[in-house]
Each structure stands twice: as structure tokens, then as C-alpha cells.
Design a protein around this nucleic acid. Sequence first.
DNA 1: GTGAAAGCGCTAACAA
DNA 2: TTGTTAGCGCTTTCAC
Lengths: 333, 333
Amino acid sequence: MVTLRHLAEQLNVSVSTVSKALSNSEEISKDTIERVKALADELNYQPNRVALSLKNNETRTIGVIVPNILNRFFAKSLFGIEQAAAEMGYSIITCMSNELFDKECDSISLLSNGSVDGFIVAVSEETLVNKKSQHLQQLIDKKIPLVMFDRNLNDITCDKVVIDDYKTTFDLANMFINQGRECIAFMSTIDDLNVGILRSTGYEQAISAHGQQTPIKLSIKKGLDYQEQIKEFLQEYPKIDVIIAADNISGTTAVNVASSLNYKIPKNLSIIGFADEVVSNLSVPKLSYINQNAVNIGSSALRLIVEKLKNKHLEKPHLKIKIPVDIVHKGTT
Amino acid sequence: MVTLRHLAEQLNVSVSTVSKALSNSEEISKDTIERVKALADELNYQPNRVALSLKNNETRTIGVIVPNILNRFFAKSLFGIEQAAAEMGYSIITCMSNELFDKECDSISLLSNGSVDGFIVAVSEETLVNKKSQHLQQLIDKKIPLVMFDRNLNDITCDKVVIDDYKTTFDLANMFINQGRECIAFMSTIDDLNVGILRSTGYEQAISAHGQQTPIKLSIKKGLDYQEQIKEFLQEYPKIDVIIAADNISGTTAVNVASSLNYKIPKNLSIIGFADEVVSNLSVPKLSYINQNAVNIGSSALRLIVEKLKNKHLEKPHLKIKIPVDIVHKGTT
DNA sequence: GTGAAAGCGCTAACAA
DNA sequence: TTGTTAGCGCTTTCAC
């Protein structure tokens, strides 16, 4: 690695002269600046980032902790985070909790020793279900900036980026009611998560408020065959004419299962899920979907934390940003 | 942030005493060690990682550059990398090239200034197609360890982790030939990538060697509707009784399109794709698949680079690790 | 216009 | 047993 000292020695000047020359200091003669820059270019000098971090007490790196990158929503969020980070000259260190509280704690403590300037976190299922928050509270106590997204804890006071899960399914159910649909069902693989509960409640309250229908819900179990569970559900409630799927897998699966059972979609059965363009294309007909704009969620979270870092002296109030969702009608509504 | 100096001042000892005490040095009295550790615990002291990095000239961080994390294969690879890294006490800084050469270069130069100890890279489509390799050659010249996986360049001499793409489709085609299938087709969305070409060639040579059939290939175009393209292909070649899909989207799509056209799967039409359990479950019947063991590829790459870092003084020959694939028969074969 | 020195937080050789 | 010092690579204040 080429250092300032290498340059200084070769040019017979001092390290500080080289440093100043490279930053175009007025103190240094034009001639020296040129000589220094020429050699720096030639040797492909790059200032050591670690030394700069130590000196400036900032790493320009953000720690990102997500539960599971195989979940397309988190993959997209991470994509948004990285993209925004690259634009702003930041790097991201990514850790995956695998939905485990302990791994989440380990990751946070591994990084909260100066490795990163702040954190973006979506907590694990375990953390959420057991409402554990000490590890995040510790960050706040240490005054390390924190932004939570999607999976957030009410106990923790920090900036948050979310979608309005409740309102989304509430509106959706009402939309179908207004279309004259008579048996609107709901299915979910994420019944234990706050976002899952909010989506479920939104659906339920819309149906109940209407008064003519009762909520019909399938809570899909993780270990078992999804297709079988959906098939049995459809057979148990043959009157179902709408399915609202709360996650990004069951919607597509439902379309394909229902098709194989010769349902006419969307004539006799409408299906909508939380998904995106790519997932939508995996079913015939193509799944209509709620686009959560995960990329946007991620980039908003990143910009928010960089904002906080730049104004660390100010004690700004904490924001809760709600990213709007899009309803995209394809072949199943 | 609590530093050694804080501890030292509070305890009226020197910084070096504190440092030694915390590392259980024999030089320090039991009593002092206890007092130091007690205070360190109380104040939740954590050694500053940046300072350690500067001192030791190693960051215990690996730079990971992938083309596109929304591709499930890379998401899984990244998962494997992170998991192995966490086990070995390493962090990863992730950059996404979005299949662009320039972004890839930027990421590499952003990180090759001491930010990371080494790189794990799967190059972008652009890099691959244009065979650009200067940016990677620069790493090698600087003696920064590099491991490439999946998308690798022949020009670059470094450690590599891959699967045997050619042999996989070659064997697959022969399997179907031996089953008596008479019209084996191939489809791909990745015809421009080396892995795509290898898979295509494997298929083609197996078919040609057999002599009774001619290769039938569909090169799926990115901008256009996948389902339409597959539908037209099936209608153009109604005799097709096997589809080998080279990527992780077209297999599932093909099953669902063929089902909607009333093909009897797998009786009259077998389909197999490069996919995994989760993707397989998205079609009815469930897609049979080649599991590339992406997680394993990722963790192998990580372990390989850590190995290199630990033996940086040794000039070991470069390895090319071939990760075996699994064929998983589900409902479409 | 240039250089010496201090300091970011840490470790380790050396001194006391 | 404890402390002093130097140094990792950099910036910046202060001398010259």
C-alpha cells in the first residue's frame, strides 16, 4: 500500500507537505503540488480509509441488519439501501439475523465498536415476538443513530420507515366489497409478525364493519406443504371469491393451485398478494399485487440515517416515514 | 465511546497497563487486572475496531461484489458468505454492480484502500461480455486476495468457486435421452453469460452426440413478456416433450404456462430448471430442479479467502473448487 | 512555502 | 509490576 510517507521520501519533502499538496492547500507552491500529484497518480496513491476513519472518528459505513435476505422484500430493501449508500459515498456492512435474537445481538455488538457510524435494522421474528429491545436501547443510549424499517418495535424511540399495513388491507377489502364480492378470504404465512398482524386486522375490520360477511382466514404453517394447505382451504370454503394474500409467496401459490383446480380467475375468484413484477410473472394468470416499494423503503432509510449523521449535534425529533404502496392490477383481479 | 484512556484515568494507571490487563498479561498484578476488568465491564468498554485495524493492518472485513441481489442465486450466495463470515469473526461489505462494469470498478476502488482485507467477486454481465479485467488485475497486482465465484473471468488467475455448468446440462440431456424422450428443448434468459453458454453447450453437445435429435433452443428476451415467448415457443414446436431451463425463472414460468395450455406434466412434458425448494413450490405441479447449492458456493468462497489471508506469506497455487449440484425430482420429471 | 509535532485508540518493545 | 515511548497513516496547528 502506497502511503504519504512513500511519496514524501521519494520527493524529499515532508509528509505534511504531501498531505497539503494533495488537498490543494494554498500554503504549498504550485510546482510542489504538481510534482506531488504526478507521483501520487503514477503510484496510484489512495488515502488509507482506516487511518482517515480513526482521525475523523467516522467510518462512512452503515451497519445493516436484516432477518433474512432470501425473503424478496428484504433483498429489495437491501438493494435500495446499497444503491442510496453508493450514491452518497457510504458503504454498508450487512449482517443477517436469520430471524434469531442472539445473532442480531451479536451482529450489533460486533459492529458497535466504531466499525460503523449508524445502524439500519429490521428486527428478527424472535425479537419481535418476544419484544426484546435491550440491544437496540443500548445503541440509543450510546447515541449511535438507528433507523428501523418494516419490522420495528414500538418500545424503541427512533426514526422508522414503514408502510401502512393496516390501511392497505383495510382499503383492499373494501375495494372488493364495493365490487360486490361476497366471500373475501385472507391468507398469510406471517401471522406472528407485527406487519402480518396489522394486515390481518385491516382485512378483518373492513369485513366486520361491512356486516354482511365474516372473516375467513388461513394461517399457513411454515413446516408443511403450502399448496396442500391452500387446496384444503379452498375445498373447505368453496364460496370464496376473493383471496387477499399477506405475503409474497402465498399469492402466487394460490393462483397456481386454484388454476389447477379449474377455478376461473379472475371471473369467479380474484387473488391479490404482496409481491412485485417478477413474482407476478410466475403465475398464470399473472398475480395482481400490492407493491410495497421495498427499494424505496431501503433508500429512504439510508438517506434518513445519513441525514441524522450529518446533523448529529441537532436533536431533531424522530420521524416515522410511511412509504405509499401501489396496487398493480394484472390478471387476477 | 469508552477508550482505554478513560479507564486509565479513572483508575490512575497508565493506558498500557490497562491494555495489558485486559489481555491478561502476566506482567500485571492480579489485583490490577481485576480492577481494570471490573471497570471495563461496568462502562461496557469495547476496543475500537478502527484503531485495531490501523495498528494490525487488517480489517477482518471482506468486500463482496455481486451483480444483482434480486437474483435468488446471488441472494443465496451472499447468505452463505455472510454466514461463514460471522462464524469466522469477519464482517462483509456488500456492493452491487447492477450488472454494470463502471459500478463494479467504483466499488472495487472504493474498497481497495484498506477498507477490506480481500474481495469476493461475481462479475457483472457487462464485464463478462466485454471481457474487461483490468480492475481485477489491479487487485492482484496490489496483492489483495481475490476469490471469484459463478461469474468468473478466464483471464484472471485467482481462486474460483464454480459449479460444472457444462456437465450438468450434458448429463441432464443424456438422462432424458435414456428415458426415451424424443424432443428435448432448452430455454434460457442468460444466453449472454458464460454460465449460460456453458449450460447451453452442454445441452447441445449431448443432443448432437446422440444423433437422433437436433437442439431446439429458446433464448428468452429480457424486455419482453416471458410467458408469451414460452407460449409461442411451445406452439411452434408442439412435439417438445422435455424442457431444460437454464435459469431460475423460466422453469417455473414454463410449468405454469404449459399447465394453462393443458399439457400433461410430467407425462407428456417434463420440465427441469435451475432453482431451489422455494421456487419449486411456486408451480403446480412443483418444478423438478437442479440445486446449485448457492449457499455452499458462498460459504466456500468465504472460507477460501480467509484461508488465503491467514497464509498470505505462502504463495499457494490457485484453486478452482467445483461445488457439486443436486438433482431434485419433484412433480415435473 | 515547508516542516515538526500532536493526536485519533491501540499494542508492544523497552525502561524503570 | 507499572509506565514511557514509538508507531500504524492521516490531518492540522503551529513554528520556522
